[in-house]
Design a protein around this nucleic acid. Structure first.
Lengths: 121, 121
DNA sequence: TTTAATGCAAATACTTTGCAGGAAA
DNA sequence: TTTCCTGCAAAGTATTTGCATTAAA
């Protein structure tokens, strides 16, 4: 675990959810923690190998990462104004676990998002 | 629905599962149905808009497509080998509706995906 | 000194876009 | 003609790799 990996971990902690390599890089640039993009990729790859972070793909194909085992939440997003509401979803957590074990899956994660038009719009 | 879209649909039917744009393109090249890569991408985009096909991302970020059934479903995806299982989820449908109406949202849709490592991997 | 870490620049792979020629209506 | 369809080439984006430089042990 070297200096770069610690910086990347720091960002992921602050973000408290998913972030792409490009986002991590930009956040580091804004702070005074600047490191190269290549190094961010290498740090993330290494953290993945060590199973410290978890990865999946956004709809546009960009890889996003988060700390493993972190409690996550879901979002209710307005398609019109972009307002985002964080929601708790025990039902979803259970559902995901259930479905996964029904099919013999392990190391399970999930994503879920609700979108629509909010009151104001 | 034009000629190119029909060719792409034909391939997806024959494949009977997921295929990437690049794969569709190569399969068409091998047959005597050759069309340009650009056209394959455009056809897939159009089929997506018409909700005739369904898309997901492979682990390497490549987009894969397949014909979609009429009913709304979710996916259980193996992060290792890409195996995908379709699952029904009434619980999720209800949850999404509930959460949305709790917050005064309308025209509601949602996404949900479970990922993990499957039995074989 | 010997090894590991860094980052620029180039390479790679998938995907999208600009544009000009061709088909269809 | 006028509109839509095609596909080549170029551009764009995320990611990886080669390589020379620097930091660390």
């Amino acid at each position: 675990m070297n200096k770069s990996e610690l910086k990347v971990l720091g960002v992921l902690e602050r973000v408290g959810g998913f972030a792409s390599a490009q986002e991590v890089y930009q956040l580091l640039q804004r702070g005074n923690q600047s490191i190269g993009l290549t190094t961010v990729y290498r740090a993330l790859q290494s953290l993945l190998d060590d199973k410290v972070v978890d990865t999946l793909r956004r709809d546009d194909g960009e890889a996003i990462y988060r700390l493993c085992g972190e409690n996550h939440h879901h979002h209710l997003v307005c398609k019109s104004c972009g307002t985002t509401i964080e929601i708790q979803a025990n039902a979803i957590e259970k559902w995901a676990q259930q479905m996964a074990s029904d099919h013999g899956f392990r190391e399970v994660g999930h994503t879920a998002e609700i979108f629509g038009i909010c009151k104001k719009c």
